[in-house]
Design a binder for these strands. Structure first.
Lengths: 195, 195
DNA sequence: ACGAGACTACCAACTAGTAGGTAGATTATG
DNA sequence: CATAATCTACCTACTAGTTGGTAGTCTCGT
């Protein structure tokens, strides 16, 4: 069922690691060529330009998020647990250094300097994520399972902002546990009845 | 009282604008030379290397924050108003596009790819800011003027994370008002007795 | 006369991207 | 079945332009 080793996918995976570490201008075709063991020109065969490469990468990142969230909602139906699982997912990714930062959060920070084709994909990711969180929070508040003090959309934006800011702090301090430390009280304020 | 036009300061100011827009790798000596109207080589006279330039820039950014916060505390003594004024400062900076992002939040995002001399300065900024916020929140909670559900240090980290994440969202959406929209309920959760 | 601050003129290394070619697999056709 | 055409995936070798940085010179105010 799993596809054979594919160079294009290897390039995208390497590109993702580089973007997570240093952003759009933090890597070159030469860097990718070296880590996956092919020549620079061969990357151009798969992705004619750097814009193509990063555009494809971000588009696939969003697709993965869409299917990931759908599966998450199938496995974890309750809104409070959904938020906790989402935050826990990132806590693990950061702690085991497998995905120490969100690709789109990284790219969003340098949005004014990004090629417009990439910028539009990054914006789409933010819109999807905030839309998904709005739905979860709206449902949770309707059930009385979440305590909110503003409109679901606004609470969702605040939650998403805290997640991204917590990633940033964990990185700034070089302390992977900082993410969970920040998210715990944030979740507690939304979920009633736990101390 | 105000110093005469100083090229070194002009270089730092231009560098700051470029970093805010696109990070450490998002600008070159040539870019700075062009906007301030001197030759590339003349910048090396003031800052021998790019590391020197950015290190000086971030160090001064922290110094300005230290004196700025001290002055803020002299003018606005009450913790709730202090937090509101701090958030309001950034809201204005973002809305009038004068400082659409925090230099150190920007650099922190690409910390793993940063020269270590710069990284250490960025870390120092985060430590100062979280320390200052911890003090304000601790004092406010002691007076009963702020409602907190975790240790002051943790509340301060969460507040700072939300500020940085809200900047990121405002940038991602291209909507300067998003920052204030996110910060309003965040402040309301901390400040009792307002609806 | 001297130093600060600017200049011209370089440099090696790196950037994304191109040109042209090769080996091998796949597909179409007589 | 054979063979010709095409395609995929890579290669070497190159381009024009940019990167941070250096060396040496000119100019101007004190």
């Amino acid at each position: 069922m799993n596809k054979p080793s594919n160079t294009a996918d290897d390039i995208l995976a390497a590109g993702r690691r580089f973007i997570v570490a240093g952003g759009y201008n933090g890597f070159s075709y030469a860097d990718i060529a070296e880590v996956i063991g092919i020549r620079k020109a061969s990357i151009h065969h798969h992705f004619p330009s750097k814009v193509d490469l990063v555009q494809t990468l971000v588009r696939r990142y969003l697709e993965d998020a869409v299917t990931g969230m759908a599966e998450l909602e199938r496995n974890v139906p309750e809104p409070p647990e959904l938020l906790r699982t989402y935050a826990g997912f990132w806590a693990r990714c950061i702690e085991d250094a497998s995905r120490p930062f969100c690709v789109c959060a990284m790219l969003a920070s340098e949005l004014p300097a990004l090629p417009p084709e990439v910028a539009v994909e990054v914006r789409a990711y933010f819109q999807f994520l905030s839309g998904w969180l709005t739905g979860v929070i709206e449902r949770g508040a309707g059930q009385g399972a979440l305590t909110i003090s503003a409109a679901p959309r606004v609470e969702a934006e605040a939650f998403m902002a805290t997640v991204h800011g917590a990633m940033l702090s964990a990185r700034a301090y070089g302390d992977t546990a900082a993410f969970a430390t920040i998210m715990t009280p944030t979740l507690q304020k939304l979920i009633p009845g736990i101390q």
